[in-house]
């Protein structure tokens, strides 16, 4: 009891800290609007924050599958790509407005993940990872070849729309919603089943868990969200081609952010994505030529010191410590 009482202020601090952070994030664009482009927060800061928020969402999606069910997906950018191409094709070729294309992108990415998952999620460990790497490479080639539809290698140009605050708010809104959704799912029976699959899949199956259903549903949900990010990214970038959309380093960023923050935790990928962006800015500014090497070394160093990510350092599993979730004892 005492222990729980002592934790109360920590939880309160964390909650109010989160609230302050959200308010600041929500007000940032107003500062940018007043700063005429050269204040502390200008349009390019807003752009880079938007990219960071998109990575928060992508990393959370990746972690939802790979961190919670243990299926390490090396090709997750495939679903981002499907969303980007849905928006790109429908806006540039069919003249659709933006928002409905997001829905189409989300649904096609989600449906593709369920189908691909049915085929690849019997594969264990590295075999699944490689199969997803293959899936992503195949999709990139399809985008290159299906020229009449996708514009092929030269790509597609979308109607330009340079409203940075709008994209910022969309990315922020999605990130908040997705993290809240995953946090909630993690606490349900479905979330428990996902963890069971990660810990011992045949064991879970023999205890009545329909593992293929749980895995593919989780995969579909994550892919759906990545499809939305892809659509937003395509529109704000106003141009897509196979190489900038199906970019393998984007998957790697999702993985790094998750592992850096704390694989399998909910808040870990958020912290990891933020840290990765900050690290990149600092390193890039100070080691122009060597920034990739320095960044790589720094990441290796951090992982050696903090094998459980930043969350591990805090000695708490982001409010997700199962001891606390299930600690409510039955009243007698």
């Amino acid at each position: 009891m005492l222990e729980i009482a002592q934790r109360q202020p920590i939880r309160w601090l964390r909650r109010s800290g989160l609230l302050v952070l959200l308010v600041v994030l929500a007000l940032l664009p107003l500062l940018a609007a007043r700063g005429d482009g050269d204040g502390m927060v200008n349009n390019s800061t807003l752009f880079s924050l938007t990219q960071m928020l998109m990575l928060v969402t992508l990393a959370s999606n990746w972690n939802f599958v790979s961190g919670l069910t243990g299926y390490i997906d090396f090709g997750h950018v495939a679903f981002f790509g499907l969303g980007a191409y849905a928006t790109g094709i429908l806006m540039s070729k069919a003249g659709w407005p933006f928002l409905p294309t997001l829905a189409v992108g989300a649904l096609s990415a989600g449906a593709a993940a369920v189908l691909i998952g049915r085929a690849t999620m019997h594969l264990k460990g590295p075999y699944f990872s490689i199969a997803m790497l293959g899936t992503f490479a195949a999709l990139r080639e399809i985008a290159r070849v299906a020229r009449p539809l996708t514009g092929g290698g030269p790509g597609l140009t979308l109607p330009p729309y340079l409203n940075r605050p709008l994209f910022y708010y969309l990315a922020l809104g999605q990130a908040v919603l997705v993290v809240a959704l995953y946090r909630w799912v993690r606490r349900t029976e479905f979330g428990l089943m996902m963890l069971g699959i990660r810990e011992d899949e045949p064991g879970a199956e023999m205890r009545g868990v329909n593992t293929i259903f749980v895995k593919t549903s989780a995969f579909g949900l994550a892919a759906l969200s990545s499809g939305i990010v892809g659509g937003m990214w395509a529109y704000q970038n106003t141009f897509i081609d196979p190489d900038i959309v199906f970019l393998d380093s984007r998957t790697i960023d999702m993985a790094i952010a998750s592992v850096l923050g704390g694989l399998g935790t909910i808040i870990g990928p958020v912290i990891g994505a933020g840290l990765l962006y900050w690290l990149r800015d600092v390193v890039w500014a100070s080691f122009l030529q060597w920034h990739l090497i320095v960044q790589g070394l720094l990441l290796i160093g951090i992982m050696l010191v903090l094998p459980n990510g930043i969350i591990g350092l805090l000695g708490d599993r982001s409010g997700l410590d199962p001891r606390r979730i299930w600690a409510r004892r039955r009243k007698r």
Binding site: A204, G208, P322, R323, W326
Partner: peptide, 21 residues
Amino acid sequence: RVYRKLTVIENMLLSRQWRGA
């Protein structure tokens, strides 16, 4: 085969009768 990194109570909850769930 227990779920080693889950709590005892979580192990139990995860083994419930899932028929009809």
